[in-house]
Design a protein around this nucleic acid. Sequence first.
DNA 1: GGGTATTTGTGCGTATGTATT
DNA 2: TAATACATACGCACAAATACC
Lengths: 248, 248
Amino acid sequence: MSALASSIERRNGVSLWRQIADRILQGIASGDFAENAALPPEVVLAERYGVNRHTVRSAIAALVQEGVLRAEQGRGTFVLSRKRLSYPIGQRTRFSTGLQGQTTERHIALLSSSTEPANRRIAEALGIARGSAVIRLETRGEADGHAVSRATTWFDAKRFAGIEAAMAETGSITASLKRFGINDYLRHSTVLSARHADADDLAALDLQPGAIVLVTVAVNVTLDGQPIQFAESRFPAERVELRLSAND
Amino acid sequence: MSALASSIERRNGVSLWRQIADRILQGIASGDFAENAALPPEVVLAERYGVNRHTVRSAIAALVQEGVLRAEQGRGTFVLSRKRLSYPIGQRTRFSTGLQGQTTERHIALLSSSTEPANRRIAEALGIARGSAVIRLETRGEADGHAVSRATTWFDAKRFAGIEAAMAETGSITASLKRFGINDYLRHSTVLSARHADADDLAALDLQPGAIVLVTVAVNVTLDGQPIQFAESRFPAERVELRLSAND
DNA sequence: GGGTATTTGTGCGTATGTATT
DNA sequence: TAATACATACGCACAAATACC
């Protein structure tokens, strides 16, 4: 919200131009800088943030490089439009149906899979013995050719043997679970946090270093409450917001 | 999860020591570095991240300053334990009751208040005319003496005239609304995102520059669906996680 | 207690990046 | 574009505290 009077911090490990670039990104997100409109002139921004015009230019150059702004000599610097996807999250969260209307095409790509012993956290979530085999799927959610999520999912290996093949074939968790006789499931106990993206997420989600990811840790259960799936999903905060609807 | 092989990036606006400090924080969060245990020696970390030992020392110094680590000459560097608050979020979200059991004391401090004309976003959310007066409250949620949230809240100035006095007195939104005849309310349409904390949030939440805040934008409504409150809350991601419970 | 290896703490010279004027 | 000041990062060396045999 409020466009507070700058106060950029010095010698804190983040260069001034990077801080100002982040400020501009924030300004775009909060509506201070409208999309498809011109940014204030460099001298004005320099004044506002209390730095030299050269520093503002460095920030703008970085954002042009990242595809957020377009600078035109003699005319000004313009905000390119890029609306964030709104990803619904609730008891009936489904990847594909959740993004209907916002995108024309979406699917889940299986990056890799493996079988491993369940650690304490996963065993408790799935209600199985610690150390028993679980299948781990590394996936990326894609919508209209853009990466919108990166997830790590665990299934009980005994009950869902071969689910990695189903995922690779269908590109859908819901469709894959159907092959194991599960026609409906609910989301239970989602925990939400945020952190800087790690190297793996940076690559998979095509992000710049320092980018933030929203993290959800969730358990999906059958209608009678039996846990079937444990997942940690990462969403690029600059491209996705999570929407909690009251009635799903 | 996966402890991938470093890949610290250079000349991207964020200093190496800051990036490595973030890595270590992530390592603690993901369990790679256990709490109350020793970190690997500086030389090992330097090797792992591909930087000079001095650079690792800068990162550690920052985290010691932030109260995350404790370094002892000749012994090692240790991870201090600090559990995150789990903030429940759902239809019946209440600040105080939500943190019961996790804290012994909590209240909301009113930092400032003002009356202003509603912009489009706020007017739509509250279902009032654009430009009509709204009361804005700037508040900080505190639990056991620690700042856990920073919120900006808007009310229709006509209907809730004087609510800032009630807030200052009671330290509770729920109690203040009672004075206006609202004994119960529900949360409607929460939108969730994350970003770097701005200067204001850094100060109010006692965070270090570069810290991440979870942001919720929510509308509270009466039982019959009438909007009464529009709020943007920021939670320090390093101290708070948001928990979505299925049945509230 | 002694000796040695390990680990954090300190100093300094140099090169490069950042920010201002 | 140039000059200047400061922050960042590296490399090497050594001191101080601790751990281990």
